[in-house]
């Protein structure tokens, strides 16, 4: 990874709030991080922690009652929050696109695969010649391993894996630089999932696209991602290289999350870790660090002040008082080896 080129996406203090009867719910709260060019960034966390909201915010797809209440999203240095409708449509699809959670319902039931692909091109390039379009589609589906005869099929005639490949094709057909895969493999069985993950990696290597893989499947992230971002209750709690995160997780939440992953080695002696407590109600988040009510190593300061995202070791950011100094902090700050 070349660190001198500017990152593809820079997210700065991004907040997304939903208006509910209980008041504003901050699904994403002051999140800042970068997505580097050509990397696969895994975004993990529990259900409802704001992963998908963050993914949608990257395309400005937050629908009312939600809205992006603060922050900046810089894509190639431009703030997409300032784009007008025309510019935004151009950005969606051509520069960034999304693969959705449920491949069963994310294709139009009345359009064939070919119609989906040609339409995606035509939306952005109305004057595209059918010849060159056909060639592009041809090359793409061959790359994705979709049979030629499948072009005339309707979505209901395809298997889940095939549909998801069509969705990936939709993301790739416009040569988008950023693909946001929102639980793209969740509803597939493990074998198809593994194939698809391989394919995503190959595509990344081949086309140089950047992939943001949103998932709650930790094993999948370990398999495919270069870096991992962990979210909890709307906060980004930890971000780092995949090996570092899995070998030496710093944030207590990440430690708990990794301990909760079932493995085939579980026996009677070693029980699966169960994190105490429940995820907080985001309409009334806990004071200070949002994780402190469930944190096994909570300190007095945790309930009073919100920690910042601090680079505890090179390339490893963590959102925790354990690794930060504060005048009012009583415990000793932990030092992390590089």
């Amino acid at each position: 990874m070349n660190d001198t080129t500017p990152p593809l996406v820079q997210i700065r203090d991004l907040s997304v709030t939903y208006k509910t009867r209980l008041g504003d719910t901050s699904a994403v709260d002051k999140v800042s991080f970068d997505i580097r060019r050509g990397e696969i960034l895994g975004l993990v966390g529990e259900s409802g922690c704001g992963k998908s909201t963050l993914g949608k915010a990257l395309l400005r797809m937050i629908m009312p009652p939600g809205r992006i209440s603060a922050g900046q999203i810089l894509f190639n240095g431009e703030d997409i929050l300032t784009f007008d409708d025309k510019r935004l449509r151009d950005y969606r699809g051509r520069q960034a696109s999304m693969i959705f959670q449920d491949p069963m319902t994310s294709l139009n039931p009345v359009q064939t695969v070919e119609q989906h692909l040609t339409e995606a091109i035509q939306v952005h390039d109305a004057g595209a010649e059918s010849q060159s379009m056909a060639r592009r589609i041809q090359a793409l589906i061959e790359r994705l391993g979709i049979m030629q005869s499948r072009l005339a099929s309707y979505p209901h005639q395809l298997s889940g894996g095939m549909r998801q490949r069509v969705m990936i094709g939709l993301g790739l057909v416009l040569n988008a630089g950023l693909i946001i895969a929102d639980e793209a493999t969740t509803s597939l069985d493990v074998i198809v999932e593994a194939k698809l993950v391989d394919q995503l990696r190959e595509i990344r290597d081949e086309y140089g696209v950047t992939i943001l893989a949103i998932t709650h499947n930790i094993a999948l992230v370990a398999e495919m991602a270069d870096r991992v971002a962990v979210m909890y209750a709307g906060n980004l709690v930890e971000l780092g290289e995949v090996n570092r995160i899995f070998d030496r997780p710093l944030h207590p939440y990440t430690q708990g999350l990794l301990a909760s992953v079932p493995t085939t080695e579980i026996n009677e002696r070693k029980e699966l870790y169960k994190m105490p407590g429940e995820p907080p109600n985001l309409a009334r988040p806990p004071s200070g660090c949002r994780f402190h009510p469930r944190c096994p190593v909570a300190m007095p300061i945790c309930s009073r002040y919100r920690p910042g995202l601090n680079e505890a070791a090179p390339g490893h950011w963590v959102h925790c008082w354990l690794y930060q100094d504060h005048p009012e902090k009583e415990e000793k700050t932990l030092k992390v080896a590089a």
């Binding site: 395309l59 797809m61 935004l88 449509r89 151009d90 950005y91 969606r92 699809g93 051509r94 696109s97 999304m98 959705f100 959670q101 449920d102 319902t105 994310s106 294709l107 139009n108 039931p109 339409e119 995606a120 939306v123 952005h124 969705m167 939709l170 416009l174």
Partner: peptide, 16 residues
């Protein structure tokens, strides 16, 4: 439905 959202994520204009 998800496919409408998917279409929007591809930049399809509303009338389309």
């Amino acid at each position: 439905d998800l496919y409408v959202e998917a279409a929007r994520s591809l930049g399809t204009p509303p009338w389309q």
